[in-house]
Design a protein around this nucleic acid. Structure first.
Length: 582
RNA sequence: CGGGAUGUGGCCCAGCCUGGUAGGGCACUGCGUUCGGGACGCAGGAGUCGCGCGUUCGAAUCGCGCCAUCCCGACCA
């Protein structure tokens, strides 16, 4: 490709509405342009990278036995009503009516459509397992689109769905996808980590997220310094402490204390001269509308996802002031476990604790020396808090570390959630009708591209891994008005293309500085400079974008040497043994 | 939805407080010089100052309303 012919509008200044680095660089490098909030056009340079990412995904999905389909973006409400998500999925689901006033939506995901397709066509265990995937536009009407294509409303996603006859097969399908994802992100050249994750809206038995490690990532994750345990912070477990039966002889008498206008943990600890660890925080939640109280140590935070999963609720949120008043007989700030009108659950952090401070369920009063069993009861102890860096690994006990990541892929073991709701059944070997066991597996294509930039860039621009670089090599004749230089550029351009290398020839009549800066910005891995001095000596200069390493190569050997470098890099990234997350 | 900020040629911004001619840099067109890390000179083209209403002799500037965009929060396969 000739730069002079390419629709490649680079931008010198940082766009005022782009905050994160990948967003800035994608705009500056002429990869994307915004149409409206959360909706982007992809330009030729950006689309070349997108297509490469998609191709790697296709190769690995096909290799894992999945087959590509293409499902509709517009979907009828009936299917969503059948699965129960028409009412459950909030405003993120863009709904509209067609001319016959039939309710429709733009697909934010395709469990309903695929389940409908498969249930109509698959009738026997002989047709299972099946794994179907697509790369297709999704629309999610995000409340707050941000960070460019990282959290946008319209985006391309690879989504795969597996259908199995039994649990064992379903686990195997999951395993295959897990491995395929590991290969995909390795080939793309990302530093990533699969982590245990919450299943959220999609539901199902268990799931893993594939996180690209980057300080700017939206997600926090915890991983063990000793073993392989890694989990999203909202999922990360905390080991159950050993239970010791308290000795009631150590119980001090319950005391009620006047604590006027003392509400927060900080205020209570200051007022009573105790540490936050000595205080029991009582939080009232509404779980599917029903009030639930959670007891937790004063310096800890409740993990709402854990609470939601523990209760098996669809939604959990902090209770409104009205509900707090109703269950505690007092305004916010004085809730406690004694006499509260709600089911009470306690976090593990309170196990074995005696003589604690908590709210009195009476305005301006707290109690001291409250004891479980004597003064109040709990329905159960559970792991309900957010993990902290001082916690230890729930598997092996070694210290945990924290990192930030960008969720580029998510695999779910769905089980029979959708097959039951939508009656996707088959006839098994034993002649019995059974529900198919499903899995679903997503990769955000655009987000993967953005994550690659977020992780690999410098002050000058993008540092593309060879496998997804829009071009492998950029040839820069320093001055196209010099006939010898221009001719040498044309020759090398032709030779490299014939050698199967993707080349961008910067044949623009621009000064060298402009060309160099654009080359760095768009991040082509190898740059070849053709200048008067080196050319007179029969050489060209090659520069590796990522390392800055330069090499002088005789003109006659340039095409071969550069081809070998490009192919070597591609081979290293595509190596089947390159399947280990870092 | 709550909080904050911003809307001025394609891009980045000044002007607004203190009302009266709409400016700079980049980019663009032409000519000339220049040519290895974002050149220089000369001459040009290009703007309903987000939209509406109001105040005023007169509004980019003051007031009210709306819209859009971005950030923080809530929310989020």
């Amino acid at each position: 490709m000739r730069y002079s012919q390419m629709f490649l509008p680079t931008v010198r200044e940082v766009p005022s509405d782009a905050e994160v680095i990948s967003h800035q660089l994608m705009i500056r490098a002429g990869m994307i342009r915004k149409l409206t909030s959360g909706i982007y056009s992809v330009l030729p340079l950006g689309y070349r990278t997108v297509k490469k990412v998609e191709e790697i995904i296709r190769q690995e999905m096909d290799a894992a036995g999945a087959q590509e389909v293409y499902l509709p973006a517009v979907q009828p409400a009936e299917l969503w009503q059948e699965s129960g998500r028409w009412s459950f999925y909030g405003k993120e689901l863009l709904r509209f009516k067609d001319r016959h006033m039939r309710e429709c939506c733009l697909g934010p995901t395709h469990e309903e459509v695929i389940t409908d397709l498969v249930r109509n066509e698959v009738k026997t265990y002989r047709q299972l397992p099946r794994n179907l995937y697509q790369i297709q536009t999704k629309f999610r009407d995000e409340v707050r689109p941000r960070f460019g294509v990282m959290r946008c409303r319209e985006f391309d996603m690879k989504d795969a769905y597996s259908f199995d006859a039994d649990e064992k097969g379903a686990d195997l399908s999951y395993e295959k996808m897990f491995k395929a994802y590991t290969r995909i992100f390795s080939r793309i050249g990302l530093t990533f980590r699969p982590v245990e994750a919450d299943s959220g809206n999609i539901g199902g038995a268990y799931s893993h997220e594939f996180m690209v490690l980057a300080d700017t990532g939206e997600d926090a994750l915890a991983f063990c310094s000793g073993c392989h345990y890694a989990a999203n912070l909202e999922k990360a477990e905390i080991a159950k402490p050993g239970k010791v039966d308290p000795d009631p002889a150590q119980f001090k008498p319950l005391e009620s204390i006047h604590t006027p206008d003392v509400r927060t943990i900080e205020e209570v600890s200051a007022f009573l001269g105790v540490t936050p660890q000595d205080i029991v925080k009582t939080l009232v939640f509404a779980a599917d509308g029903k009030p639930v109280a959670v007891l937790i140590r004063g310096d800890e935070e409740v993990n709402e996802a854990k609470l939601r999963n523990y209760l098996g609720a669809d939604s959990v949120e902090l209770a409104t002031d009205d509900i707090v008043l109703e269950v505690t007989n007092s305004p916010k700030g004085f809730a406690g476990a004694i006499g509260i009108k709600a089911d009470v659950y306690a976090d593990y952090s309170l196990m074995n604790r005696i003589n604690v401070v908590m709210g009195a369920n009476r305005e301006d009063y707290h109690v001291k020396n409250a004891n479980l069993g004597r003064d109040f009861t709990v329905k159960a102890f559970a792991d309900l808090r957010i993990i902290k860096e001082s916690d230890s690994c729930p598997r092996c006990g070694k210290p945990v570390r924290f990192a930030r990541g960008i969720e580029v892929g998510h695999v779910f073991k769905l089980g029979t959630k959708y097959s039951k709701a939508m009656k996707a059944t088959f006839l098994d070997r034993d002649g019995k009708e059974k529900f198919m066991i499903m899995g679903c597996y997503g990769i955000g294509v655009g987000r993967t591209v953005a994550a690659a930039i977020e992780q690999q860039h410098d002050d000058q621009g993008i540092l593309w891994p060879m496998t997804i670089a829009p071009f492998h090599v950029m040839v820069v004749p320093v001055n196209v008005n010099d006939a010898k230089i221009a001719a040498a550029g044309e020759t090398l351009y032709r030779e490299l293309e014939e050698a199967g290398v993707e080349v961008l020839l910067d044949d623009r009549d621009e000064r060298a500085g402009v060309k160099f800066n654009d080359a760095d910005l768009i991040g082509i891995p190898v740059r070849v400079t053709i200048g008067p001095k080196s050319l007179a000596a029969g050489n060209v200069e090659m520069r590796i974008r990522r390392t800055g390493e330069t090499r002088t190569i005789p003109v006659g050997e340039a095409a071969t040497v550069i081809r070998d470098i490009v192919m070597g890099e591609l081979k290293a990234l595509n190596d089947p043994n390159n399947g280990h997350p870092r």
